Amino acid sequence: QIFVKTLTGKTITLEVEPSDTIENVKAKIQDKEGIPPDQQRLIFAGKQLEDGRTLSDYNIQKESTLHLVL
């Protein structure tokens, strides 16, 4: 699982696999929060994550925290 922290300070927990794409993660966030993926920007280690890449591409491991910017 990974954590996604929103600007409001809320933390969302997501069940993911390293092979999941960023697009996939955004879809999971939409399921939980109702935020359309095209409004979501995910930041990890100061980098904006691209939809077509996977979590493992960015070396995002379990218990990692991503930041969600709208």
Rank of each mutant, 00 (worst) to 15 (best):
Q1S: 10
Q1L: 15
I2E: 01
I2S: 01
I2R: 01
I2P: 00
F3I: 07
F3S: 05
F3H: 11
F3L: 06
F3D: 03
V4C: 04
V4D: 01
V4M: 02
K5L: 11
K5H: 11
K5D: 05
K5I: 15
T6D: 08
T6S: 07
L7C: 15
L7M: 14
L7P: 14
L7Y: 14
L7D: 13
L7V: 14
T8H: 14
T8F: 13
T8I: 08
G9P: 02
G9I: 02
G9C: 08
G9K: 04
G9H: 05
K10W: 09
K10A: 08
K10T: 09
T11H: 06
T11K: 07
T11S: 07
I12V: 06
I12G: 01
I12Q: 02
T13Q: 08
T13R: 06
T13K: 08
L14S: 01
L14F: 05
E15R: 06
E15A: 10
V16R: 02
V16E: 00
E17W: 09
E17R: 06
E17P: 03
E17N: 11
S19D: 12
S19T: 13
D20L: 05
I22S: 02
I22L: 05
I22H: 01
I22N: 01
E23F: 14
E23W: 13
N24P: 00
V25N: 00
K26W: 03
K26C: 02
K26S: 02
K28V: 04
K28S: 04
K28Q: 10
K28A: 07
K28D: 02
I29S: 01
Q30N: 09
Q30C: 14
Q30D: 05
Q30R: 12
Q30H: 13
K32T: 08
K32A: 12
K32W: 06
K32I: 13
K32G: 04
K32H: 10
E33Y: 09
E33F: 10
E33N: 08
G34Q: 06
G34N: 08
G34A: 05
G34F: 04
G34V: 02
I35A: 04
I35K: 02
I35M: 05
P36H: 11
P37R: 13
D38E: 13
Q39K: 12
Q39F: 09
Q39E: 10
Q40E: 02
Q40S: 04
Q40F: 15
Q40A: 05
Q40C: 08
R41S: 11
R41T: 15
R41N: 12
R41I: 14
L42F: 03
L42I: 07
L42D: 00
I43P: 00
I43K: 06
I43F: 15
F44D: 02
F44I: 04
A45L: 14
A45Q: 15
G46P: 01
G46A: 04
G46W: 04
K47F: 09
K47S: 10
L49K: 00
L49E: 00
L49P: 01
L49V: 04
L49Q: 00
L49C: 05
L49W: 01
E50R: 07
E50T: 06
D51L: 05
D51K: 04
D51I: 05
D51M: 05
G52R: 09
G52A: 11
G52H: 14
G52W: 12
R53P: 05
R53A: 08
T54K: 13
T54W: 04
L55Y: 01
L55C: 06
L55W: 03
L55V: 08
S56I: 08
S56H: 13
D57E: 11
D57W: 10
D57K: 02
Y58P: 00
N59Y: 06
N59G: 15
I60E: 01
I60M: 04
Q61M: 11
Q61N: 11
Q61H: 11
K62G: 15
K62V: 13
E63N: 14
E63L: 11
S64F: 08
S64Y: 08
S64M: 11
T65E: 08
T65D: 04
L66V: 09
L66W: 02
H67V: 12
H67P: 01
H67K: 07
L68D: 00
L68F: 03
L68W: 02
L68S: 01
L68P: 00
V69T: 09
V69H: 11
V69C: 14
L70V: 14
L70Y: 10
